[in-house]
């Protein structure tokens, strides 16, 4: 410990010590997800919507990586592509040592129990004609050879784990409130003992007082089961609460990735800075004093992203080089990655 204090510029040591605990569970390299734009009766391909364009990041075992950005920036597409719910255009995704982005369907199917998803809208992601028990049983039917009795025991165990009363096992989703429905979705995701769960805006459809309940449940389950989360959200304050590291996306690309406290205390990318400053604070005393950066205009279309840096059309700190050269996403400080010309060669 004594010599640990002397590592002023020994970035690597610091990285492994504080930020990156354990091994990489998820490795994403150069992930691209393009959706074709077609035109005319023959559905000729005339272009691409570059929903996700060249993303690289890691998620370490047991951590929560928050993924934030505005709607349409590609955060949900990223979540789905990482789980191979889409056939990705290009890139590599390795989960628990297994490459899945290009792997055969059989291999992906074998990997399914390891990686699960909790969806945004519990109303839409639960079949209204299935009871809670059958919703939770479905993954068990698909991927395990348990007996009927064992399955029922597992269903009850899962319902206990997420705080649902066992008596409700034979009820239908519409008989539950939003927060309870999200608990059903979480129980389903947990059924096969996954290591990695993508939570795609799991609390966006819930009331404020219920959001905290669900977030606490997710945190408690993580502690107990050693889960790893990719937590996708547009709610920057909730991400600050739940995530260990935070990735900020803009127009299909990663703008910044950093440990949570560092990112919220000192955002490096001008977009992150603007995003954080746009969040209103529930305190009128500080709220009226605070200088807010108001971004002009809307997010450009991902079918036709601007030349150079994709944020150059709205960036308050835009320079000439930004309109020309695309900035590289790289580490500028230990554990802190950013794609911005403000942090060029000279400042490194």
């Amino acid at each position: 410990m004594l010599d640990g204090d002397d590592h002023q510029d020994g970035g690597e040591v610091l990285v492994h010590h504080e930020v990156h605990r354990g091994r990489k569970l998820v490795e994403v390299r150069g992930l691209k997800m393009y959706f074709p734009i077609t035109a005319g009766v023959l559905r000729r391909k005339v272009g691409d919507v570059k929903a996700v364009d060249n993303l690289s990041f890691d998620i370490y075992e047991g951590e929560t990586l928050g993924l934030v950005g505005e709607s349409g920036c590609g955060k949900s597409t990223t979540g789905r592509a990482v789980l191979r719910l889409y056939d990705v255009t290009d890139g590599m995704v390795k989960i628990d040592g297994q490459e899945i982005a290009k792997a055969d369907a059989g291999i992906v199917r074998k990997m399914r129990p390891t990686m699960q998803m909790v969806f945004q809208d519990p109303q839409a992601s639960l079949n209204p004609r299935m009871t809670v028990a059958s919703i939770i049983r479905e993954p068990l039917d698909e991927h395990t050879k348990l007996s009927k009795k064992e399955k029922l025991d597992r269903i009850y165990e899962l319902m206990d784990a997420v705080g649902l009363n066992r008596r409700f096992a034979n009820r239908y989703p519409h008989e539950f409130s939003g927060g309870q429905r999200q608990r059903i979705g979480i129980a389903r995701a947990l059924a096969l003992n996954p290591k990695f769960i993508v939570c795609d805006e799991p609390i966006a459809a819930l009331d404020v007082s219920i959001q905290a309940q669900v977030v606490n449940l997710l945190e408690e389950l993580q502690d107990r089961l050693g889960l790893t989360y990719l937590f996708i959200s547009h709610d920057l304050s909730m991400v600050r609460h739940i995530a260990d590291r935070v990735a900020v996306m803009y127009l299909g690309q990663m703008a910044e990735l950093a440990p949570r406290d560092a990112l919220y205390e000192e955002p490096l990318h001008p977009y992150t800075e603007a995003l954080l400053s746009a969040v209103p604070d529930p305190d009128p005393a500080t709220e009226t004093r605070r200088e807010r950066i108001i971004l002009r205009g809307d997010v450009p279309s991902p079918a036709n992203p601007p030349k150079g840096c994709n944020f150059c059309t709205r960036c308050p700190k835009v320079m000439d080089v930004c309109k020309d050269v695309e900035p590289e996403f790289r580490q500028v400080r230990p554990g802190r990655f950013v794609a911005c010309h403000l942090y060029g060669e000279t400042t490194r």
């Binding site: 404020v208 905290a212 600050r240 919220y264």
Partner: peptide, 22 residues
Amino acid sequence: LLKTVPKVHGERDPKLNVIEGQ
């Protein structure tokens, strides 16, 4: 209600307060 909302600015609360029940 004021306590359940996490903040983006200022101190980070390590634990979220919950209003139990429905």
